[in-house]
C-alpha cells in the first residue's frame, strides 16, 4: 500500500447521555491510499463515532495524533485534525471525502443526475462527460438519470450514492452501512462496485458494517471493537486491527 491517508494514535472520544457514558479508544489506526478498510462490530460499539471522527464532523476528546494527508483547496497536504476550524473541515470534506450513507442520503427534490453531480457542484469541480458516463454505466444507472430517488429501488439508490461519492474523485470514501437496506446479492454487488471504482481512483474506502461476512474476504484492513464495562453506566470500546495478508 502507498501513502497513509489517516494516522490515528491514542485517539479517545467520550460521549455522555442521561448519566451514562461511552468511551471509544483508538490506540492506532493507519489507513492508506487505495486501501479497503472495514469497520466491523455490533450496534453501539462505536463504529459511527469512529466514522464521525474520520468524517471530521466529530472532534475527539483526547488526541495522541490524528493526521489527515490529503490535498485540499487550502493547499494543506497534511493537517492535524484536532482543533480544525469548522469551515476548513467542511472544505476538506467537500474536496476529499465521499460519503455513502445507509439509505443513500439522496436529496429527494433532485433527480438522479443532479444528486450525482451534487458533490461536484459543491466542490466546484467540472466533471468530464466521459467520466460521468463511465461511472453511471458501471453502476448501471444510465437509464435512471432523470428519475427522482423515491422512484428507485434500494439497490439503485445505493448505487446513486456510490456515484455521488465518487464523482468528484475524492481520496477517501466513507461508507456507513451502505448495504444495510439491500438484499445480500445486491450488497455484494455494491461492495464490489465500490471497491473496484475506488481502487481505480486510488481512494481509500472505510466501510462501516455490522455484517462481517460481507467484508471479511475483501478488506485490506479490519477494525474491530472490544467492549468492556468499567462501571455501571460507563462502557468503553477499544479498537483493534486485523491486517489482511498481502497476496504474493
Amino acid at each position: 500500500m502507498g501513502n497513509v491517508v489517516y494516522t490515528l494514535r491514542d485517539v479517545v472520544k467520550t460521549r455522555s447521555k442521561g448519566g451514562a457514558s461511552f468511551t471509544l479508544r483508538v490506540p492506532a489506526l493507519d489507513v492508506h491510499k487505495g486501501e479497503f478498510c472495514s469497520v466491523v462490530g455490533p450496534s453501539g460499539c462505536g463504529k459511527s463515532t469512529l466514522l464521525d471522527m474520520l468524517a471530521l464532523v466529530l472532534e475527539p476528546s483526547q488526541v495522541g495524533q490524528f493526521r489527515l494527508n490529503v490535498p485540499s483547496l487550502a493547499g494543506v497536504q497534511s493537517c492535524d485534525v484536532e482543533g480544525l476550524p469548522e469551515n476548513t473541515a467542511a472544505r476538506i470534506r467537500r474536496h476529499n471525502i465521499g460519503y455513502v450513507l445507509q439509505s443513500g442520503g439522496l436529496l429527494s427534490f433532485l433527480t438522479v443526475r443532479e444528486n450525482i453531480m451534487l458533490t461536484a457542484q459543491i466542490s466546484r469541480l467540472r466533471v468530464d462527460t466521459d467520466d460521468f458516463e463511465h461511472l453511471v454505466e458501471t453502476l448501471g444507472l444510465g437509464d435512471q438519470l432523470e428519475k427522482k430517488p423515491q422512484y428507485l429501488s434500494g439497490g439503485q439508490r445505493q448505487r446513486v450514492a456510490v456515484a455521488r461519492a465518487l464523482i468528484h474523485r475524492p481520496k477517501i470514501i466513507l461508507a456507513d452501512e451502505p448495504t444495510a437496506a439491500v438484499d445480500y446479492p445486491t450488497a455484494l454487488d455494491i461492495r464490489d462496485e465500490l471497491q473496484s471504482l475506488a481502487r481505480q481512483m486510488d481512494a481509500a474506502v472505510i466501510m462501516v458494517t455490522h455484517d462481517r461476512s460481507l467484508v471479511e474476504e475483501v478488506a485490506d484492513l479490519q477494525v474491530h471493537f472490544a467492549l468492556s464495562r468499567i462501571k455501571r453506566n460507563q462502557i468503553e470500546a477499544t479498537t483493534s486491527l486485523t491486517q489482511r495478508e498481502q497476496a504474493v
Partner: peptide, 11 residues
C-alpha cells in the same frame, strides 16, 4: 437533506 449538504461540505 440539509444535514447531508453540510456533510458533503456545504459551509
Amino acid at each position: 437533506e440539509l444535514n447531508v449538504l453540510r456533510l458533503l461540505g456545504l459551509l
